[in-house]
């Protein structure tokens, strides 16, 4: 007879302690992972006597897919990036914030008060913004790094030690900037050029990693890595040889925005939450946590001194303005999809 080696463990540790005191209302947040300090959510919950629940996603596209897949109506607010605000609005997934509904709307900095992806800020408020470019390990390379050649036409000693983001929109937009062609072009010659550029550059690239973009640089696995500025600042904290570049050809900027979702179950609390995030003190708390930049005025004095002076957040004076990733028409987008599939086949 064989002895049974499997022991059944009865999970008896489910302590059914008293739940939290019943709150007057609820707020359901759909947010990026690791992008808001828990203390801030607790503070809002305490101030307004609201029970806050949060689910997270890891990409703008995942947010869209979830909302399309039937999650619309179960969340009050979400935090899409710039181009995704435009897409969600076109898909009819956003509610309109009427004039006067947000008491703190005036706190928004003038340059972000009216933006191309949400004219008049009808559906959204700024959360954080930053840039997308690349970071180079100064141990591996001492020359001039302020050029997109570092990614697309790298010096021989860096070939095979480059990581790029596994993100179609950002990579192809940065490649377009490198070539000096406009985004969402449907000009055949320009697209063939773009296709040839990324095909040729791929042999220099070691990997397409987004969530580990910081780790590959810190560990030295990559000597050059495409990355977001705040993520790069965190990387520099772990490896001092890393330097973020603002290339002369240009770079990408992005802004994450809090939007009011259509059919929000707790619309009132959603508006309260948006007002809460527009207060300089709370916006500063997010910035100190995420290390990007707030879109709200009066934040500067509340930031950590080190963060305020960080080279990642302060482009050199001669750096050009960054470009947002643009939303293409369907017929054009298909062409960019084909280039991307062709790149990764």
């Amino acid at each position: 007879m064989k002895k049974a080696i499997l022991t059944c463990l009865t999970a008896a540790g489910l302590a059914l302690g008293a739940g939290p005191a019943l709150s007057a209302g609820k707020l359901s947040v759909y947010h990026w992972f690791e992008y808001i300090p828990q203390e801030l959510l607790d503070k809002f919950a305490a101030e307004h006597d609201v029970e806050v629940t949060m689910d997270t996603y890891d990409s703008n596209e995942a947010l869209l897919a979830a909302l399309k897949g039937g999650k619309l109506g179960s969340y009050d607010v979400a935090v899409p990036g710039d181009y995704m605000v435009e897409i969600l609005a076109k898909e009819g997934m956003l509610d309109t914030i009427a004039a006067g509904e947000l008491a703190n709307k005036g706190n928004i900095l003038p340059q972000w008060a009216d933006v191309s992806f949400d004219p008049g800020r009808m559906h959204s408020i700024p959360y954080q913004w930053g840039s997308t470019s690349f970071t180079v390990s100064r141990d591996a390379y001492q020359g001039d790094i302020r050029t997109t050649d570092m990614l697309f036409n790298p010096p021989a000693e860096l070939s095979g030690k480059i990581n790029v983001l596994d993100s179609q929109g950002e990579l192809l937009a940065l490649a377009s900037i490198h070539l000096g062609i406009e985004q969402c072009s449907n000009d055949k010659e320009k697209l063939k050029q773009l296709n040839a550029l990324v095909q040729g550059a791929k042999e220099h690239w070691a990997s397409f990693i987004s969530d580990g973009a910081k780790d590959v640089l810190v560990s030295g696995e990559a000597a050059v890595g495409m990355i977001w500025n705040g993520f790069s600042a965190k990387a520099r904290g772990e490896n001092a040889a890393l330097e973020y570049s603002y290339p002369k050809e240009g770079y990408l900027v992005w802004m994450d925005n809090v939007v009011l979702l259509k059919d929000a179950p707790n619309r009132e609390n959603a508006l309260k939450f948006m007002d809460f995030l527009l207060e300089p003190e709370n916006a500063a708390a997010v910035t100190n946590f995420a290390q990007y930049t707030a879109g709200v005025g009066g934040v500067d004095d509340l930031l950590d001194a080190e963060l305020k002076a960080s080279p990642e957040l302060n482009p050199p004076a001669d750096a050009p303005a960054g470009q947002f990733v643009q939303v293409c028409e369907e017929a054009t987008q298909v062409l960019y999809d084909a280039i991307w599939t062709n790149l990764k086949k």
Binding site: A62, A65, K68, Q168, G169, Q333, D337
Partner: peptide, 8 residues
Amino acid sequence: QFKGTAGN
């Protein structure tokens, strides 16, 4: 195809 930019 289900999660990407174009979503096909």
